[in-house]
Write a protein that binds this DNA or RNA. Structure first.
Lengths: 217, 217
DNA sequence: TTTAATTTTTAGATAAGTCTAAAAATAAGA
DNA sequence: TCTTATTTTTAGACTTATCTAAAAATTAAA
């Protein structure tokens, strides 16, 4: 059995791995977990002893098959709990992350599978992130964002690339929730801000905001 | 914020307090938590510093108002999660304890209250133990057990005093579940075992088993 | 390619929770 | 009451996860 902390390291390495092909750096893990590089080195040695990560000094780190399995199952837990909190307990999409961070560490395959069934096997969490299936397969959205659309094009909101409370609250306030239909009215060339239509209302949205909204055409 | 361990100590002291009027002994806490008396002494000092327990050397320990509040809220969490696991996720009553031991430590008043509402404000957990309300009030069953009934009397199963897997499984195998109606056919004077009727079937039950089954006449 | 900057690792310390073994206090028995 | 037995506490040590500060390795720049 792994500690809470060990599991969080695996999850962090998994998250960072998806962005980089080669080994993940000590520093990036430290930043992801708000800790120090020296602490990361210590922990990586431990995870390496347990054959959960591949590690060579100064060369970065990557997950072994076993380590990846564990990381994915934690992500699966996390996202299923988020669905539960939003769908069943009426939480808002900006309120569930911290609770799911705790709930994800409750390790019981039966619990996870029963929860999955109870929620009727959801494919995505409340932020549009894909929920890994029982075998650990994850089907990510294509990385097309609102910022990639041209004037006149239409799209549907399917996810977010930024999960901060403030961003999520902002999106909700202008009805940019999952499933919302968007039409691009205009793009300001100067700062790439957009005038868009959502729910028959027109709003302006900054580039900073539009490039974090995942869209399906 | 308290650690997992600190919370477990408070819960243990709360449990033991309900059986004794004066201070709870170091040894009994050690036994309850499967740890050593010396560890208990150390932790009690810490909890005392935090004003969660009243403690005088060699005189045992008792919860302060604040300590009791925390303990009760953990018990509330525990029992609500047990209801969730049984009612919503189809767990058996002998499978939920360990999971609830983990889930109970997720501290969020909102989570607890929303869960309570989602479950439609249950009064008892799957073992018949009362669920403390939001204000910390607990309404225990009268301590009348099957062993207290006389020949010819009838009763309804409302709870158990022993929570082991083996006992719970055994009860279920003879249909002695919450709500079951029992009639005492006969009592063997020699060993106080009983012949009883449940669901129109007749079974024999030992004194050891009957004295742990809480009954309402 | 040699020096400078950055990243990573080591060394040594700290805090939490635990343990064993021994000392101190309390309770029980003759 | 005095001695023995039991309970509780103290002392010192260990483990896990963390930190700071300094050393080592790698990368970047002149």
């Amino acid at each position: 059995m792994l500690t809470f902390t060990e599991e969080n390291y695996l999850k962090a390495i998994f998250k960072l791995s998806s962005k980089k092909i080669d080994g993940v750096s000590t520093n990036s893990i430290a930043e992801e977990l708000s800790t120090k590089a020296s602490s990361v080195t210590d922990m990586i040695k431990k995870l390496s002893d347990k054959k959960l990560v591949k590690y060579k000094k100064y060369q970065g780190v990557s997950l072994t098959k076993k380590g990846k399995q564990i990381a994915v199952s934690i992500v699966r837990n996390h996202r299923l709990w988020e669905v539960f909190l939003v769908e069943k307990l009426n939480f808002k999409w900006d309120e569930v992350h911290d609770l799911a961070e705790d709930l994800e560490h409750i390790n019981s395959e039966k619990l996870t599978d029963q929860l999955d069934a109870f929620l009727e096997f959801p494919k995505y969490d409340p932020h549009g992130d894909p929920i890994p299936d029982k075998d650990g397969n994850v089907y990510n959205h294509k990385d097309e964002t609102l910022a990639d659309l041209q004037k006149g094009e239409k799209g549907i909101v399917v996810g977010v690339k930024e999960h901060s409370k403030s961003y999520l609250k902002y999106l909700e306030s202008i009805n940019l929730v999952l499933g919302a239909e968007i039409k691009i009215n205009d793009i300001v060339e100067f700062d790439n801000s957009m005038s868009i239509s959502v729910n028959k209302k027109t709003v302006n949205i900054s580039h900073q905001a539009s490039k974090n909204l995942i869209i399906k055409k």
